[in-house]
Amino acid sequence: MIKNSLLSAALVLAATTTAQAQTNLRTQFNQALALFNEMVMNKEIGEAIDMIQPDVVLSDAEKAEYNTALSEAFPDPFVGSSTVQSETLKSGFRQEMLAYWTEEGDYLYLYLVMHTQGAQQQVIHVEHTTTFSKFIARF
C-alpha cells in the first residue's frame, strides 16, 4: 500500500514537473514572440532575426540592410500583427505563420520552424513573403 502511494506521488510530481516545464517553455516563447513582434513592427527585422536565431551572427551592417529593405518594402508603419496559424509537429517541432499589416492593406508574412529539445527551444528556419498562400498551404 505504501509502495503504491509513493509510486503515485512520484508520478504526480513527474507529471507536474513536466507540465511546469512545458508551461515555462510556452511562457518563454510567448515573451520572446512579443518582443520579436515589437521589433518587426518597428521595422527592426535585423535585430529580430538576430534575437531568435542566436546561431546566425549578423553584423551591424547586415542588420541595417535588413531593416532598410523592410522599410523600403513597407514605407507605411505596421499597425497590427498576429499569429495566423500555429501547429505542433512531431518530435518537438513546431511551425508558426505570423502576419504584420499596414493601414493601407499591405501584408508581411513570416514562417518560423522551431524545435524543442529538453528545456531549450530554438528557431531553426525563418522565411518571409507578401503572398498569403505561400505559407498557409504548409498547414
Results as ranks from 00 to 15, higher is better:
residue 33 L to F: 07
residue 112 L to T: 07
residue 28 Q to D: 14
residue 49 I to A: 11
residue 115 H to I: 12
residue 2 I to H: 13
residue 46 G to H: 07
residue 118 G to M: 00
residue 43 K to P: 07
residue 17 T to A: 13
residue 78 F to G: 03
residue 76 D to S: 08
residue 118 G to T: 00
residue 129 T to H: 01
residue 95 Q to L: 01
residue 18 T to Y: 10
residue 42 N to K: 12
residue 103 E to G: 15
residue 68 T to V: 10
residue 133 S to Q: 13
residue 52 I to F: 06
residue 35 L to P: 00
residue 91 S to G: 02
residue 113 V to G: 04
residue 72 E to D: 14
residue 135 F to K: 01
residue 114 M to R: 10
residue 43 K to I: 06
residue 90 K to D: 09
residue 71 S to T: 13
residue 108 L to N: 02
residue 64 A to C: 06
residue 90 K to I: 04
residue 139 F to P: 03
residue 106 D to V: 03
residue 20 Q to Y: 15
residue 6 L to P: 01
residue 44 E to Y: 09
residue 99 A to Y: 00
residue 14 A to R: 07
residue 8 S to F: 13
residue 135 F to A: 02
residue 63 K to H: 06
residue 43 K to Y: 05
residue 76 D to I: 02
residue 41 M to H: 04
residue 101 W to Y: 13
residue 60 D to H: 11
residue 3 K to H: 11
residue 50 D to C: 15
residue 21 A to V: 04
residue 109 Y to H: 03
residue 3 K to C: 09
residue 63 K to C: 08
residue 32 A to Q: 15
residue 85 Q to D: 00
residue 35 L to R: 11
residue 132 F to H: 14
residue 103 E to W: 04
residue 36 F to K: 04
residue 122 Q to H: 05
residue 20 Q to G: 12
residue 47 E to Q: 14
residue 36 F to L: 06
residue 125 H to D: 14
residue 8 S to E: 12
residue 81 S to F: 08
residue 132 F to D: 07
residue 23 T to G: 04
residue 136 I to W: 01
residue 95 Q to N: 09
residue 101 W to A: 12
residue 92 G to K: 01
residue 30 N to C: 02
residue 79 V to Q: 09
residue 1 M to E: 15
residue 93 F to S: 09
residue 101 W to Q: 12
residue 26 R to F: 02
residue 69 A to I: 04
residue 62 E to D: 15
residue 96 E to C: 01
residue 114 M to T: 12
residue 62 E to V: 08
residue 57 V to H: 14
residue 9 A to D: 10
residue 89 L to F: 00
residue 69 A to C: 01
residue 106 D to E: 11
residue 36 F to Y: 11
residue 51 M to T: 06
residue 136 I to A: 02
residue 28 Q to Y: 08
residue 102 T to I: 00
residue 50 D to R: 13
residue 81 S to C: 12
residue 11 L to D: 11
residue 92 G to M: 04
residue 25 L to S: 04
residue 31 Q to Y: 07
residue 15 A to M: 11
residue 24 N to K: 11
residue 114 M to V: 01
residue 72 E to G: 05
residue 60 D to K: 13
residue 26 R to S: 05
residue 131 T to H: 07
residue 6 L to R: 14
residue 52 I to T: 06
residue 38 E to G: 12
residue 59 S to F: 10
residue 40 V to M: 04
residue 103 E to N: 13
residue 58 L to P: 12
residue 76 D to Y: 04
residue 4 N to H: 10
residue 121 Q to F: 00
residue 135 F to Q: 03
residue 73 A to L: 08
residue 2 I to W: 13
residue 2 I to T: 14
residue 26 R to A: 06
residue 89 L to V: 03
residue 113 V to N: 07
residue 11 L to W: 11
residue 27 T to D: 02
residue 102 T to H: 00
residue 31 Q to P: 00
residue 19 A to P: 02
residue 119 A to M: 12
residue 82 S to T: 09
residue 112 L to W: 11
residue 13 L to K: 09
residue 26 R to T: 06
residue 47 E to V: 08
residue 17 T to H: 08
residue 45 I to N: 04
residue 101 W to K: 09
residue 110 L to Q: 12
residue 12 V to T: 14
residue 113 V to S: 03
residue 129 T to E: 01
residue 77 P to G: 02
residue 116 T to M: 00
residue 28 Q to G: 11
residue 108 L to A: 02
residue 85 Q to R: 03
residue 139 F to N: 10
residue 23 T to D: 03
residue 44 E to R: 15
residue 24 N to H: 10
residue 22 Q to K: 10
residue 49 I to G: 06
residue 38 E to D: 14
residue 22 Q to Y: 05
residue 60 D to C: 09
